[in-house]
Amino acid sequence: KKKYVIKVYFEDTGKEVEIEAESKEEALEAAKRLAEELGLKIKKVEIYP
C-alpha cells in the first residue's frame, strides 16, 4: 500500500514537520489539526508519493 510523506512548513517559526499518511486528504487533515494545536499558520505543504 502506498504511503504519502507530507512536509509541512509553518510561518514565523521556520519549523517543518513530516507526516506520513495513507492519502493526501488524510495528510492534509493531519497538517491542519497540527497547525491548530500549535496555534501556527501553514506556510507551505509539500507532498511526496
Score class of each variant (00 low, 15 high):
Tyr4Ile: 08
Val17Arg: 08
Leu34Phe: 13
Lys32Cys: 06
Val17Ser: 06
Lys2Ser: 13
Glu18Ser: 07
Glu37Lys: 15
Gly39Met: 09
Glu36Met: 14
Tyr9Val: 08
Glu26Pro: 01
Glu25Lys: 06
Lys1Ser: 07
Ile6Asp: 00
Pro49Asp: 13
Val8Leu: 07
Glu11Gly: 12
Glu26Gly: 13
Glu26Cys: 06
Ala30Arg: 14
Lys44Tyr: 09
Lys44Ile: 06
Ile47Thr: 05
Thr13Ile: 11
Glu46Asp: 10
Val45Glu: 01
Lys3Trp: 15
Glu18Asp: 11
Gly14Ala: 09
Thr13Phe: 09
Tyr4Lys: 01
Val5Pro: 00
Leu34Asn: 02
Glu18Asn: 05
Thr13Ser: 13
Asp12His: 12
Ser23Lys: 02
Gly14Cys: 09
Lys32Tyr: 15
Gly39Leu: 04
Glu37His: 15
Glu37Pro: 01
Asp12Trp: 15
Ala21Pro: 00
Leu28Trp: 14
Arg33Thr: 05
Lys2Leu: 13
Ala21Met: 07
Glu26Phe: 15
Pro49Ala: 09
Arg33Cys: 05
Leu38Val: 08
Ala30Gln: 11
Ala27Arg: 00
Glu29Pro: 02
Ile42Lys: 00
Leu28Met: 11
Ala27Gly: 14
Ala21His: 08
Lys2Asn: 07
Glu11Met: 15
Ala27His: 01
Lys3Asp: 02
Lys3Ala: 12
Tyr4Leu: 03
Glu37Met: 15
Pro49Cys: 12
Lys44Arg: 10
Val5Tyr: 10
Leu38Met: 13
Ile47Asn: 03
Ile19Arg: 02
Val45Ser: 03
Glu37Tyr: 15
Ile6Thr: 02
Arg33Lys: 10
Ile19Pro: 00
Val45Thr: 05
Lys41Pro: 07
Thr13His: 09
Gly39Glu: 06
Asp12Phe: 14
Pro49Tyr: 15
Lys32Ala: 11
Tyr9Ile: 09
Val8Trp: 04
Ala31Asp: 00
Ile6Glu: 00
Lys43Cys: 04
Lys15Pro: 08
Arg33Glu: 03
Lys1Pro: 14
Leu28Asn: 09
Ala31Met: 10
Pro49Ile: 15
Val5Trp: 14
Glu22Met: 04
Tyr9Gln: 04
Tyr48Ala: 07
Leu38Ile: 09
Lys41Ala: 08
Ala21Gln: 02
Tyr9His: 06
Ala21Phe: 06
Glu16Tyr: 11
Lys15Arg: 06
Glu37Arg: 15
Val45His: 04
Glu11Asn: 14
Lys24Trp: 12
Ala30Leu: 15
Pro49Leu: 14
Pro49Glu: 14
Glu25Phe: 09
Glu11Pro: 02
Lys44Val: 05
Glu20Phe: 06
Leu40Ala: 03
Lys3Cys: 06
Ile47Val: 09
Lys24Gly: 10
Glu16Val: 05
Tyr4Phe: 06
Glu11Ala: 13
Leu40Asp: 02
Ile42His: 01
Gly39Lys: 13
Leu40Thr: 03
Phe10Gly: 01
Ala31His: 01
Lys24Val: 14
Val8His: 00
Lys24Thr: 13
Ser23Arg: 03
Ile19Leu: 12
Glu29Thr: 15
Val8Glu: 00
Lys2Arg: 12
Gly39His: 08
Tyr9Pro: 00
Glu26Gln: 09
Val5His: 08
Tyr4Glu: 01
Glu22Phe: 11
Leu40Gln: 04
Tyr48His: 11
Gly14Pro: 06
Val45Asn: 01
Leu28Thr: 05
Glu22Asn: 10
Glu36Gly: 13
Glu29Asp: 10
Tyr48Ser: 05
Glu26Val: 06
